[in-house]
Design a protein around this nucleic acid. Structure first.
Length: 337
DNA sequence: GGTCCACAGGAACGGATGGAGT
DNA sequence: ACTCCATCCGTTCCTGTGGACC
């Protein structure tokens, strides 16, 4: 059934893009100065999840590298690497200068080291850049003349709101590439492309691809996830083709899989908070703290709980409804707005 | 208006951690 | 083996703010 599983992985970058030609062109135009040894303006890729921002960034830079092989590319996902240290480390790693850097290496030394490797231009892709804590890393990177930035985030206004003035004014000039949700047809085309390479022929019908695209509501990550999970299921059940039953069973899989992965990563106390919120549906802070203390032997201080909660909001597991005063917490519903 | 309460989130502190240098 | 150093995590303390009630 599955011929090449890599193609159904989340981080797979296709050799041809099915849609998004305009976006690719705009991004490569912005990066064009690198061809003649210049420095491009920073570029921004904005759009909701699963619309191909990361994929297009990697694809376009892959193309660029074929033209200008000396360009180094550093991809850093700020979701995981959200401190100044980790971002700088990630970039150093990508240019092979991370040897004997360790936890206790001063951050300024990382910066100096990066400043030192200026014989080749470096393009730094910062994915989920809105998850970065503080703007020190951005400021550092932008200061280096041999570093160009490609920044990926969901919403422009939120991203810029999180910048301090210094960084905001410096990055204002960059090029914006905006991504809209895929239409069902576009998503079907993407899925068909992946299916052709990843699976044996004729194991999935066009109608089924449409069903997947529909269930994924414009999110290619979910769509590909459903396809992957359906193929695995079919294989496990030794089906010749993906049956409709298998497919329907795979749809909830893909949505919960992503969440389950994050929930598993929570430490015990965060997990308790999560469960309390899940049980209550929607809960006020006071009641939440109280119930948490009831369920746990050695409760953490409630300042710590607030740290946990912000972190979980950050992970998109829970949502805080309302700013301040009358705020409640609830789980994030599967469908996003 | 004023006062009080509940809560969010910043700042500063201190202990634990773990690699480096001795 | 031991000290130094920077970071991480949880804590305490504190400030700011919205809502309820007078």
């Amino acid at each position: 059934m599955i011929v090449d599983g890599r193609i159904l992985r989340e981080d797979f970058v296709p050799s041809e893009v099915v849609h998004r030609h305009d976006e690719v062109n705009l991004l490569s135009e912005t990066l064009e100065p690198l061809v003649s040894g210049g420095r491009p303006e920073p570029s921004f890729l904005f759009g909701p999840t699963g619309v191909g921002k990361t994929c297009i960034a990697r694809y376009t830079l892959g193309q660029l590298r074929e033209q200008v092989p000396k360009v180094r590319i550093a991809y850093v996902n700020c979701w995981q690497e959200y401190t100044r240290f980790r971002v700088l480390y990630g970039v150093l790693e990508a240019v092979d200068r991370a040897i004997d850097v360790h936890r206790t290496t001063p951050k300024d030394e990382l910066f100096q080291r990066l400043a030192g490797c200026d014989e080749q231009p470096i393009v730094v892709i910062l994915d989920e850049v809105d998850q970065l804590e503080g703007t020190a890393a951005l400021y550092d990177l932008h200061r280096l003349p041999h570093v160009s930035l490609v920044l990926i985030a969901n919403r422009e206004d939120e991203l810029f709101a999180s910048f301090d003035d210094r960084v905001r004014s410096r990055l204002r000039a960059g090029t914006r590439v905006r991504f809209d949700r895929y239409g069902t047809d576009e998503l079907v085309a993407i899925l068909r492309e992946r299916t052709a390479k990843a699976l044996e022929p004729n194991v999935v019908t066009d109608a089924q691809l449409e069903r997947i695209a529909d269930a994924a509501s414009g999110d290619a990550r979910v769509g590909i996830g459903v396809l992957r999970s359906a193929a695995r299921r079919a294989e496990r059940e030794r089906c010749e083709t993906i049956t409709d039953e298998v497919l329907e069973a795979a749809i909830p899989d893909a949505r919960t899989e992503i969440r389950q992965k994050t929930v598993d990563g929570l430490i015990e106390h965060q997990r308790v908070l999560y469960d309390v919120i899940a049980d209550a549906g929607e809960i006020e802070p006071g009641a939440l703290y109280e119930e948490y203390e009831r369920r746990v032997d050695a409760p953490k201080s409630n300042r710590t709980l607030r740290n946990y909660l912000t972190k979980m909001v950050h992970y998109d597991l829970i949502a805080a409804v309302g700013e301040r005063g009358g705020r409640t917490y609830r789980l994030v519903d599967g469908e996003d707005a």
